[in-house]
Deep mutational scan, measured.
Amino acid sequence: QAPETKIVDKSRVACDGGEGALGHPRVWLQIPEDTGWVECPYCDCKYVLKGSKADAL
């Protein structure tokens, strides 16, 4: 199944896999201003900063 994409309001987000005990260790991710998105290294969930150029795609 394809990784999930989430639109977020802040450039710093936490990801834990979203499945409680079945998820992964919580990691904090920083969305770079130049790209407007970041992917979780564990679950490949893509976080897109709302209003960024990546959000316009």
Score class of each variant (00 low, 15 high):
residue 34 D to N: 08
residue 23 G to S: 14
residue 53 K to Q: 11
residue 16 D to F: 12
residue 46 K to M: 06
residue 50 K to N: 07
residue 37 W to K: 03
residue 21 A to N: 11
residue 32 P to S: 06
residue 57 L to R: 08
residue 4 E to K: 15
residue 23 G to K: 14
residue 8 V to P: 05
residue 32 P to F: 03
residue 17 G to Y: 04
residue 16 D to A: 09
residue 39 E to F: 14
residue 21 A to Q: 10
residue 21 A to M: 11
residue 9 D to L: 13
residue 48 V to D: 01
residue 18 G to E: 06
residue 37 W to P: 01
residue 47 Y to H: 07
residue 6 K to E: 06
residue 31 I to D: 02
residue 17 G to V: 04
residue 14 A to H: 08
residue 12 R to V: 13
residue 37 W to Y: 12
residue 56 A to Y: 13
residue 32 P to T: 04
residue 30 Q to H: 10
residue 31 I to E: 02
residue 55 D to N: 01
residue 43 C to Q: 00
residue 31 I to G: 03
residue 16 D to W: 08
residue 42 Y to D: 04
residue 19 E to D: 10
residue 56 A to H: 14
residue 39 E to L: 14
residue 2 A to G: 12
residue 51 G to A: 06
residue 41 P to A: 05
residue 24 H to Y: 05
residue 44 D to I: 11
residue 6 K to G: 05
residue 29 L to H: 02
residue 30 Q to A: 07
residue 32 P to Y: 05
residue 48 V to G: 01
residue 24 H to T: 03
residue 33 E to S: 06
residue 42 Y to Q: 11
residue 11 S to L: 13
residue 44 D to G: 15
residue 32 P to C: 09
residue 48 V to N: 01
residue 57 L to M: 12
residue 10 K to C: 11
residue 43 C to S: 01
residue 3 P to T: 12
residue 28 W to Y: 09
residue 57 L to S: 14
residue 51 G to S: 04
residue 2 A to S: 12
residue 54 A to H: 07
residue 41 P to W: 06
residue 33 E to G: 07
residue 12 R to C: 14
residue 11 S to P: 12
residue 42 Y to I: 14
residue 21 A to F: 08
residue 1 Q to M: 15
residue 52 S to D: 08
residue 47 Y to P: 14
residue 34 D to W: 08
residue 39 E to G: 10
residue 55 D to C: 09
residue 53 K to L: 11
residue 29 L to Y: 05
residue 54 A to R: 00
residue 8 V to W: 05
residue 26 R to Y: 07
residue 31 I to M: 02
residue 25 P to A: 09
residue 26 R to C: 07
residue 54 A to D: 06
residue 23 G to Y: 09
residue 13 V to W: 08
residue 51 G to K: 01
residue 35 T to A: 06
residue 3 P to A: 11
residue 42 Y to F: 12
residue 27 V to P: 02
residue 47 Y to E: 11
residue 46 K to L: 09
residue 13 V to T: 01
residue 16 D to K: 08
residue 30 Q to W: 13
residue 49 L to C: 14
residue 7 I to P: 03
residue 39 E to K: 15
residue 50 K to V: 10
residue 9 D to T: 14
residue 34 D to V: 07
residue 7 I to H: 06
residue 46 K to D: 13
residue 57 L to F: 13
residue 33 E to C: 11
residue 20 G to D: 06
residue 35 T to M: 08
residue 32 P to H: 09
residue 57 L to W: 10
residue 25 P to S: 08
residue 49 L to W: 02
residue 44 D to S: 15
residue 36 G to H: 02
residue 30 Q to S: 11
residue 30 Q to D: 13
residue 12 R to S: 09
residue 48 V to R: 02
residue 42 Y to H: 07
residue 47 Y to K: 02
residue 44 D to A: 15
residue 23 G to M: 11
residue 34 D to P: 04
residue 32 P to I: 06
residue 4 E to L: 15
residue 5 T to I: 14
residue 56 A to T: 14
residue 36 G to V: 05
residue 50 K to Y: 02
residue 10 K to H: 12
residue 39 E to D: 09
residue 27 V to C: 09
residue 25 P to G: 05
residue 53 K to P: 12
residue 6 K to C: 10
residue 28 W to H: 00
residue 50 K to R: 14
residue 38 V to A: 04
residue 5 T to W: 15
residue 29 L to N: 01
residue 1 Q to L: 13
residue 29 L to M: 04
residue 32 P to M: 04
residue 10 K to N: 11
residue 30 Q to M: 13
residue 2 A to T: 11
residue 8 V to G: 01
residue 7 I to R: 08
residue 11 S to G: 06
residue 15 C to L: 00
residue 34 D to T: 06
residue 27 V to K: 03
residue 45 C to G: 15
residue 48 V to A: 02
residue 25 P to V: 11
residue 9 D to F: 14
residue 53 K to G: 10
residue 23 G to D: 04
residue 36 G to T: 03
residue 40 C to R: 07
residue 9 D to V: 11
residue 5 T to N: 06
residue 11 S to E: 07
residue 12 R to M: 11
residue 14 A to D: 04
residue 57 L to A: 14
residue 15 C to H: 00
residue 27 V to S: 02
residue 53 K to I: 12
residue 38 V to T: 07
residue 1 Q to G: 12
residue 57 L to V: 11
residue 12 R to W: 14
residue 44 D to Y: 15
residue 43 C to P: 00
residue 9 D to N: 11
residue 5 T to F: 15
residue 19 E to N: 10
residue 39 E to M: 14
residue 7 I to K: 06
residue 2 A to M: 14
residue 16 D to S: 10
residue 53 K to V: 12
residue 55 D to F: 00
residue 40 C to L: 09
residue 28 W to Q: 00
residue 38 V to E: 02
residue 40 C to F: 12
residue 46 K to I: 14
residue 53 K to A: 10
residue 49 L to H: 10
residue 39 E to H: 12
residue 37 W to C: 01
residue 5 T to A: 12
residue 7 I to L: 11
residue 28 W to C: 05
residue 47 Y to F: 15
residue 34 D to E: 11
residue 50 K to F: 03
residue 49 L to A: 08
residue 13 V to A: 01
residue 23 G to T: 09
residue 57 L to G: 12
residue 24 H to Q: 04
residue 55 D to R: 00
residue 24 H to P: 02
residue 39 E to S: 13
residue 33 E to N: 06
residue 30 Q to F: 13
residue 42 Y to S: 09
residue 4 E to Q: 15
